[in-house]
Write a protein that binds this DNA or RNA. Structure first.
Lengths: 404, 404
DNA sequence: TTATTAAATCAATTCACTTGACTTATTAGT
DNA sequence: ACTAATAAGTCAAGTGAATTGATTTAATAA
């Protein structure tokens, strides 16, 4: 179809693109800095005070920002700070996991307003999608009960699923959800919900959440290692989530040998370091509703088998962190996950001390080389909800350009 | 100094930023597609024909593009294609290596017009900078002899040096050029040459060269593994070189254990896979002027020691490729280097077959998963020269924004 | 009390892209 | 050979968001 004219070019832009960008940086600045006056915004963004005034006025009219009491801070007319209005926008997040689906609704600042989950029937996507659409409907009803005007301000629906996408049989195993990926799920959900739908893998979603309201808040270069049922990484580069050429970037669970002593038939990292591996070790059923509590208990009880597993996982992750630092030179690396808090915290402890790398610079950031992030069964769903917010309001190159 | 106002915000933009971007995408489109009519450009970029007409007219006035004979291609008025004018801009590249410094001057389309090198005196940067400035002066004289108008059209001077930067003693070894990095070299060169100066590590420079005129031409997601005296990677993400938070991204030479069988005291990858390691193996003096010829001879002669070394390097790089594919999901990976052609080609051969990864998709690009790129002692210098061209003419997010 | 400083606005201007009508040059079809 | 259709490209007026420069407002310092 594009065989006739296969001209490769980037998109142009115009006044509208510039204007859209300026609106986004205002919202971004308020999100990162809390509350700022127009004069502050003008200085920080390089725009003229007049331009900022016009933009803020418009954003206020749209219900996205609001002034608060003016503050005297020295000579001169007192400044009127503006802040984001939490009820300015809402977004739905949906996580589709192996045995369960979860939905979350957040507002502009990332407050969670609705949380609901449902068991997925074993019949595969054709039956699953019915459950999913029903769950979304119920969540929206709950939202409307809390905030009657919210429906009008829904900016999108984000979906998080285990990756990688578009690869049918790399390893023919139950670790991947092949059937789900081949089903036209996004179309069905978009139709059913009447919203813009975007798909991310779990790790990317978790990174989106970390950036909106977690440890990566305001950072432009951060790597989030997502320790969930599988293992992945969300890459925040230049302030944006990086997806690679086919939206599968960050699949660190697929990495092979890492640890001294590994034999030639070593399996992918994910087969050692993941909740799936832990469930196998403890002989827990991953579909068990009380899984998180059971794992938390098991870790608190301790025991040699578990300690040994955590030590070996920590050793692999220590190597992984060193690789990621060498490759990305990030501000920080965040270990987060759809895993119990204790597990993430214990792993971060055990991964220290880190291996030498280029991140070992004399003048470090406020940020540590490695830190713990969100650890919650809901973190992927939360990240899915963060995606439409980020896509609508975060400054991004692609938001400036025309769509051809 | 910024303790008083520590407001974190992104820059805004205006008509000027949009306009600058549109000029850049025109040049980019012509670079990638060869020659295009205004109508083609309008369709490909999403701008109106009128806007394209104005921009092209201006670029032609500035001597950056030129029309060629019009072509009839069916019904309708024949199109007038435009192409880049090679003499529209020039840039100087400078490579500072352990024992030698090289300079290259290229034009807008990447033709090499001048190539010169000089031995670096052992006295360190204070004496080295004299040699360097003298070399640059001579190169410019040679340029003026060829193209009298070129001096006015010099857009900058790129410098390539071994990284990492800003890290004094990670490994205290002669592999790094600590003294050089602590010397205010860039200031001295900028003063001496009267040009904008930018610093990259060798691998980043090589990637810049691959993108301007090598295997990554027109690709937006490519990883260039640079096999030189050290080992590094240049990361082309979203069409731009990615430098990380501190310009040290891509230091894959620092990665530790990789290969099944490595012991716990494994050294960084670079100590196995690099020209430095090869020189050690063959007992060659790296400062030897005929080094490349000697290595080429040695490889053509073959021998068990060399084969074994290449096998082991190939095994490590195979793992590295699998890691990079898993992490970046790129369109392709390019093995290039300041190393003899035969070595690069033999390594690419030996690295095949690649390990399974997410890059193993059914519908591959035209591009292979792994391919050989530029292999030349001059490739880092060439890349250094490509940097100012890229910075001045390539579409980039930061080029749209105001400088605060 | 006055001068200084800073926030914020008003009104006019600018500039690059867009819009819509028009010209020019070629081929397809009768 | 003529006419209609198609496409490239231009002309001239219009648009919209940021800029410019003057002005107003409200605070503190001297």
């Amino acid at each position: 179809m594009d065989g006739i004219r296969s001209i490769r070019a980037k998109s142009g832009t115009n006044l509208g693109g510039a204007s859209a960008h300026n609106r986004r940086i205002m919202i971004d600045a308020l999100r990162v800095n809390g509350a700022l006056s127009r004069a502050d915004l003008a200085r920080a963004t390089g725009l003229t005070p007049q331009a900022v005034s016009n933009i803020i006025e418009e954003l206020a009219r749209d219900g996205l920002v609001r002034s608060q009491a003016s503050v005297r801070k020295g000579r001169g007319q007192p400044a009127t700070p503006y802040r984001l209005v939490p009820e300015g926008a809402f977004a739905i997040g949906l996580q589709i996991d192996r045995h369960v689906t979860r939905t979350v609704i957040v507002n502009l600042v990332g407050d969670v307003l609705v949380k609901m989950e449902a068991k997925l029937p074993p019949g595969g996507p054709a039956q699953g999608v019915v459950v999913i659409l029903d769950l979304i409907r119920k969540a929206r009803e709950a939202l409307t009960a809390q905030a009657p005007e919210a429906e009008k301000r829904l900016v999108g629906l984000g979906v998080a699923m285990p990756g990688p996408f578009g690869i049918n049989t790399l390893y023919d195993d139950p670790w991947m959800m092949t059937a789900w990926q081949n089903f036209p799920l996004m179309n069905r959900i978009a139709e059913g919900a009447g919203l813009e739908v975007a798909l991310q893998n779990d790790a990317a979603a978790a990174a989106t959440a970390e950036r909106l309201l977690g440890a990566a808040h305001g950072l432009d270069h951060a790597i989030c290692i997502y320790f969930g049922y599988g293992l992945g990484a969300g890459l925040i580069l230049n302030g944006e989530l990086y997806g690679g050429a086919h939206a599968n970037a960050g699949e660190i669970g697929m990495i092979l040998a890492l640890v001294p002593g590994d034999g030639p038939d070593v399996e992918p990292l994910e087969h050692y370091a993941s909740m799936a591996a832990l469930c196998k070790l403890l002989d827990f059923d991953p579909s068990e509703p009380e899984l998180f509590a059971m794992i938390t208990d098991a870790i608190l009880r301790g025991g040699p088998r578990l300690e040994q597993w955590m030590d070996s996982v920590a050793e692999r992750l220590r190597r992984t962190v060193q690789i990621l630092e060498s490759i990305f030179d990030p501000q920080t690396i965040i270990l987060c996950g759809g895993a119990p808090r204790v597990l993430i915290d214990r792993l971060v402890e055990k991964i220290e001390p880190l291996l030498p790398s280029i991140a070992e610079r004399s003048r470090r950031y406020p940020e540590a080389r490695l830190q713990a992030g969100l650890a919650d069964p809901w973190s992927a769903a939360l990240g899915a909800a963060a995606e439409p917010i980020a896509r609508t309001f975060d400054p991004r190159f692609s938001a400036i350009l025309k769509t051809v």
